[in-house]
Design a protein around this nucleic acid. Structure first.
Lengths: 178, 178
DNA sequence: GAGCTCTCCTTGAAGGTTAAACAAATGGGG
DNA sequence: CCCCATTTGTTTAACCTTCAAGGAGAGCTC
């Protein structure tokens, strides 16, 4: 029942280095809770959506992105970036959603390499039917359990973390400039 | 670039119901940041460990659990519970780690159904070599970016969320008793 | 101790993800 | 215009995860 980051003994002495800087007991605690919560939450939502909508959480997220986009369509690359997944993964995902009839591909007129993923009416229907249940699940697993201050704090924290891991958000790939 | 939880329009009126309760704009913001950060962080650590240790993050976590257990061994079910994964998934994972020579299976003497997963010396070696790099990655992606207050807050929040999703922690499966 | 149920763990198949390799189109120099 | 690096999106194969099914032992009840 321990953390993911000790292997040898935690050494917090003032040793210059060559002994790596392990996590403190408190950091380990935080990290362990983070890992457990994120694993459990992701699994929970995956199961909920697989049961109620017949697709994993991330696929649902793709449909949502499309539903909110201008003409219910997005270029593959843009969709991949929004959803934080690789183009390869998106390619497979869209192929599957296309087979379901929930998304359709369309050529981009201005760039012959380009493809649009377009949400079909059926896809929109699925979303409309399943969104309430999904929102309820998120609410129940997360928001209902947190105070308003905690919700605010969580938002700030995750914004920082996400920003720091962005593949190459404007300037973020120039660490020597910080 | 929108959230995962709107599909129709957000209605925060005092309508009794049948119109589901959507997330508020602020809740959507929090949820979107959470999804992005957790996705990016998991991918980041997966890639880091795949590159440096030749296994995904969750497999690394299994080795850590074993390293910290009494005789570097754990019953399959216990390991699965600690790591928050299904027994089936664990079975496959241990099979792979066994093939790598990092884990060995051993029969349980007191229960002929039981199996121990035992960390081998080689497995321990891999852990010892790769732990510093992994800790550094976690530190750099998470702890270095957060204030002590934020770290504390994150721990509390994630503890609450994890506790709420526990399959059946003592009494947690009796919601009517809360 | 026979029958039942439950727990422990594994298996196989179906589906999702990854990394690397690729074809095609674009676009910026020369 | 031509070359070449880059961008766009797909493909293949290896790997991982999930789900449903199942074998086998434990343990309870009668």
């Amino acid at each position: 029942m321990e953390c993911m980051n000790t292997a040898p003994a935690p050494a917090d002495t003032a040793a210059p280095s060559d002994e790596p800087r392990w996590l403190t007991a408190e950091e380990q605690r935080v990290w362990r809770f983070y890992m457990h919560a994120s694993t459990l939450l992701e699994d929970h939502l995956d199961r909920q959506l697989q049961r109620d909508a017949g697709m994993p959480h991330i696929y649902y997220g793709l449909l949502v992105q499309l539903a909110e986009a201008p003409r219910r369509r997005l270029r593959m690359t843009e969709l991949a970036m929004n959803a934080k997944i690789t183009r390869s993964r998106l390619s497979h995902a869209i192929a599957r959603l296309e087979k379901n009839g929930w998304v359709r591909r369309e050529d981009c007129p201005s760039d012959k390499r380009g493809q649009f993923a377009v949400l079909t009416d059926e896809g929109y229907g699925v979303l409309r039917r399943t969104a309430p249940g999904h929102v309820a699940a998120v609410r129940q697993a997360l928001f209902e359990r947190l105070t308003p201050e905690q919700q605010k704090s969580l938002g700030e924290i995750m914004e920082i973390v996400a920003e720091g891991l962005q593949p190459n958000e404007a300037g973020a790939d120039l660490p020597w400039l910080r």
